[in-house]
Write a protein that binds this DNA or RNA. Sequence first.
DNA 1: GGTCAGTCTGCAAACGATCCCGGGATGCGT
DNA 2: ACGCATCCCGGGATCGTTTGCAGACTGACC
Lengths: 332, 332
Amino acid sequence: MANAHDVAQLAGVSVSTVSRALTAPTQVSATTRERVLEAAERLGYTPNPTARGLRLGRTHTLGLLVPDLENPYFASVTKGVQARARAAGYPVFVADSEEDPTAEPGLVAQFAARVDGIVLASPRSDDEVLRKAVAHLPVVLVSRDMADLPSVAVDDADGIAQVLGHLHALGHRRVGVAAGPASSWSGARRLDGLRAAAERLGDVALVELGSFRPYFSGGLAAADHAVAQGVTAVVAFNDLMALGILDRLRGRGVSVPQDISVVGYDDVDVATLVSPALTTVRVPRTGLGRRAVDLLLSWLDVGHVDDQALARARHRLPAELVIRDSTGVPPA
Amino acid sequence: MANAHDVAQLAGVSVSTVSRALTAPTQVSATTRERVLEAAERLGYTPNPTARGLRLGRTHTLGLLVPDLENPYFASVTKGVQARARAAGYPVFVADSEEDPTAEPGLVAQFAARVDGIVLASPRSDDEVLRKAVAHLPVVLVSRDMADLPSVAVDDADGIAQVLGHLHALGHRRVGVAAGPASSWSGARRLDGLRAAAERLGDVALVELGSFRPYFSGGLAAADHAVAQGVTAVVAFNDLMALGILDRLRGRGVSVPQDISVVGYDDVDVATLVSPALTTVRVPRTGLGRRAVDLLLSWLDVGHVDDQALARARHRLPAELVIRDSTGVPPA
DNA sequence: GGTCAGTCTGCAAACGATCCCGGGATGCGT
DNA sequence: ACGCATCCCGGGATCGTTTGCAGACTGACC
């Protein structure tokens, strides 16, 4: 690989001039700049990012921490982060904590000296642990809220209100709720939103079917509860659970949406691959990642980590109800 | 952040000794080593990776390039790479080329100075372009073969042979083939394997239904061809296509597996979430990633890039037929 | 006690870039 | 012709670490 020194030699100038020709073009005369650029071109010169990082104290690199890359939700967030960072010329380190919150501080520590900032998608880990881990590093949270840290999340309250409004408009008055793990931050948020929406509507009863695992298997269990409780519609914590519910209902001869309507959350790809196609809430997952990077980069540009206004930044992206074939009017 | 200099001062030694105490413990006396280690502990000192990288000429970092992070296949590969690299203490840059082969050389170039080696999962890009892009950097290919580059792939020929053997054993003699994009390396490989297997079995006719998009939508189209050609079983390029086939057949009132058997490939999670559950071929996707990293790291340990034996390394991981409910005996 | 082998440690030079600082050249006005 | 401001450019320090080299010290042996 070619040096700044090599380029300088070929162009007949000093290394300082080479550096300036590339980073501060106005400080060098047009003719020499031309010579330097051509020499750099000929040698295929690219400034060594490591040396640059050492001198500047910035690595021009971002980090991303997710609980599970195989989870389509986080895969999309990752893709969004990746795309945005790439556009800005930032490579990004990706780490998968394998759903183990205790591993996160270590991962963050590993990143600390190698990145300029971190996007953190960590639905379950403890507040204090997190806060300590990210003490001296710009961090943006995804799908989670925390005092004095900037975050990007979906407006779940609104999304879930759209769901209940949809069901209410169809005529449903007894709606089952299949909740997710109690420890999930966004799960609690959705439940709150649901209760608030029910409150506003007045004449709809929320039947809490219980707390289930946020996977296909959890949905299988939830479906039986729904039937037992005699609800006319079920709102699931996420799409995977909703798919489990669909499968189990079909197995028991309960037809959807004629007998029971089912609504998911997230709009993962599979939602359109089943029949009936799933009514669900589309959350802008890659959008979350993109926005998080935008926030992080603007923070880095400003420079001071303790900028209060920035640290309090809370971004809420809109969710959108997608009506498909798994919801209909309740049976007479 | 604490320096080696800070640690040296606190321990009352020179920076050289600090460095040696951490990297070459035998070269320093037990007592001073103890002092240094304690001082380092107290200050929370970690050697600056950037400075280290500059001095050593190695970044202790890996790169991974995939065409699409939202594709479950590559999400799993990424997860495997991630897990293995993390265990070895290597952070990994992840880049998503967004299915655009022309973007790959640029991405690789961006990586070049920042990583010690690259795992490349690039099913479609041109050989020559690739070879040039990776000229001076250790690279391991995933799910793809190329002369003089080490690679890790699945034994597709064997996997597909298991599929055909299974169908043959059930009694199928007219088997439809829904191929993927012609440019896909592994697609061509599977087709070859299928033909070879048919040849060996002797009494089974392969009906090529055409080349379809490797998504749900491609399967919808393929299904109609299958019905038109009167085959009793269909082998799809991948699971998504198989799901499309299932959906379309159901829509047309063709029951699976009574009328037609359907087999996928990859064993993505969704394969178990549909009914009938999909018979498919499980490929060790995270295993591919893990093995690729193993190969890369051992290469880096050896040091010389032009080690012929290593460069020729071709790893073939076994595929496994998973029989579920979408295959059965053909109609009488 | 002097020599020598061996062990331990510090000095200083790298690695490759950036950037402060000062000097030379140039142009302009007087 | 001289002073002065302006513009370009090169020298060299710097970021934090590793490492070759040499000096200092210890202990042992003749």
